Each structure stands twice: as structure tokens, then as C-alpha cells.
Simulated assay, not measured.
Amino acid sequence: MKAMAARALWQLAKGNAPICRSITESRALLCFAVLLEKGPEEVVVNSAMALMEITSVAEQDTELRRSAFKPNSPACKAVVDQLLKIIDKEDSNLLIPCVKAIGNLARTFRATETRMIGPLVRLLDEKEAEVSREASKALTKFACTDNFLHLDHSKAIINEGGAKHLVQLLYFGEQSVQISALELLCYIALHVPDSEELAKAEVLTVLEWASKQGFMDASKQGFVDQDETVDKLLQEAKGRLELYQSRGSRGFN
């Protein structure tokens, strides 16, 4: 019954703000946290999928996000704790929905709360391409300009060693992973261009290389809008890095 109930809530929550509001106004978030920790496998999977859908709606619905996922809310804290435990364990059956859920909540975390960054950065080194791609996308929601705390989050990603993982993904990852990794690396370079870690990882050289690769050719991919956005971001990030590195070479840093 619990598995069926969790599955029903998962399906009902998809893209439905009123339903998500009803769910979060009840004790459902705390229940999901308990089920993630102690439930049978099917219940845990369905609960994770339900949370992924609820947080996806909350990401787009400011009112729902602020009411249901306040940083100091016991229910929100319990859910995040369990999502991070699953990500830390790298449970392959649950990683994708849990990573997506954490990414969906990126705008709810305070600048001082960085405990979710390390586990996500470690997943960039995951052998499964889908996991690395979703980790990149989740981290991008922390580092993108739309996130008010993008500077703090970008620095946290660098401090966790994110730059070297992203460079590896760009050089050796599958094409879909390369584009996600490139977008994240560009945001980090744009926001923290004076980082010594980015200089050590030769990120400017990597971005120059990326700008010449076929996977940025929008006409071949069929994702014209997305690729044009990434290409624009790439040019801005390169320009920022060139500016700061040229200052450094003249001894102004």
C-alpha cells in the first residue's frame, strides 16, 4: 500500500502545482524522508521519484518553494539529509532522481550550506555518463547567474576539486556529458575568473579547445537554442579568463 501510495503521489505531482502544494502542506515531506531511510526498495524508489517531481514544480513556483522548502524547516532538512545520504552511498537505482531533486532545490540553500556540493562534485567522476551529466546539470543550477548565490556556490565547487573533473569530462566524456560539463565550467570561469585552481587546470586552454569542437555545432545537433546559449556563455567565460590572466601576466594581481 505504501508503494502504491508513493507511486500515486509521484504521478499526481508531475507538473501540478496545486497537488504539490497539498502534498507539502500535509506531513508528506517528513513521511517521504522516513520512507527514504527505512522503506522497502519499491517504496524508496517511488518516494524518490515523487520528491523529484515535487521539487521540479517548486523550482518553477516561487511561492511553493518558499513555503515548502524553507532552509530552517524540519521537513525540508529531513528530506535533504536523506537525499544526500543516498547520493553519498551512490545507490545506482536512486542516484538520478535524488541528484535532480537536490538540483531543483539549488535556490533554497544558504551560502554557508555547502554540504551538497562535495557529493555532487564526486559524481562528476562517475563511470555512468547519465550520472555525470545529471550531476553537472544539478551543479549548474547552483553556479548559474540566475542563482543569487552563484559566486559562493561557484567557489565551493572549485574548492571541492570540480575544475579538474570538468576538464576530464570535456576532453574524454560522451557528447551529452561534454555539453553539460562545458556549461558548468563556463559559469564557474565567468564568476571566479581569478581562481588559481582554474589557472592550474588550464581552463582557458580547455575553453579555447572546446570552442573549436564539433559538439558545439548547432546545425548538426538540432539543439540550436541551447547550443547558441552555451556558445554565448563560452565566449563570455573565455573573455573574462583572458582579461584576468592578462592582468596577472602584467603583475597586477
Rank of each mutant, 00 (worst) to 15 (best):
R247D: 10
C144Y: 10
A33S: 15
E202C: 10
S176W: 01
S195N: 07
N46T: 06
E236M: 09
Y244T: 12
A135D: 00
V192I: 15
T229N: 09
E37S: 15
C20W: 07
A6R: 09
R27N: 15
R133Y: 07
L190V: 04
E37K: 12
S211V: 08
S22R: 09
R122K: 10
K200R: 11
A5Y: 13
T112F: 04
E242P: 00
R133D: 06
E126K: 00
G162E: 04
N159W: 02
N93W: 03
Q11M: 05
L243I: 06
L12S: 13
V57G: 02
R21T: 15
A181F: 04
L84K: 00
A50E: 06
F109W: 05
V206R: 07
A33G: 06
E134N: 14
V167H: 01
L36S: 13
A218H: 09
E134I: 02
Q178I: 03
V99P: 01
F32P: 01
G248H: 09
E183A: 08
A68Y: 05
S73I: 06
A135E: 00
L151V: 14
D231N: 10
A210C: 11
N253H: 12
A75S: 15
L198K: 03
E208N: 11
K70H: 14
E197V: 07
L243K: 15
T62R: 09
L30I: 06
E25M: 02
L36Y: 14
E196D: 13
E42W: 03
N253Q: 12
T140H: 02
H153V: 05
R115Q: 12
G222N: 13
H191N: 10
K137C: 01
L190Y: 14
G15D: 11
Q226I: 04
L120H: 00
E130V: 05
R65L: 09
S26H: 12
P40M: 04
A201R: 02
G173I: 00
R65P: 01
I87P: 00
W10K: 06
Q221E: 12
M116N: 01
D81K: 13
V192R: 14
L94F: 03
E236F: 08
R7L: 12
V79G: 04
E41W: 08
S180C: 07
L233E: 11
Q82R: 14
T62S: 12
K2F: 06
E63S: 14
L151M: 13
R66K: 14
D146M: 06
W10R: 08
K137N: 03
Y244C: 13
I157P: 05
A129T: 02
V34T: 15
I179Q: 12
S132L: 01
A143C: 11
E41Y: 08
S219K: 11
K200L: 08
E130A: 05
A78C: 11
L207Q: 13
A48R: 06
R107P: 02
K127Q: 15
N72F: 10
Q11C: 08
L35G: 14
A199M: 07
S67C: 07
L198F: 08
S246K: 10
K89W: 07
S176H: 09
I157G: 09
P71Y: 13
K232V: 06
H150E: 08
S73T: 10
L149C: 12
I158R: 00
K220A: 15
L30A: 14
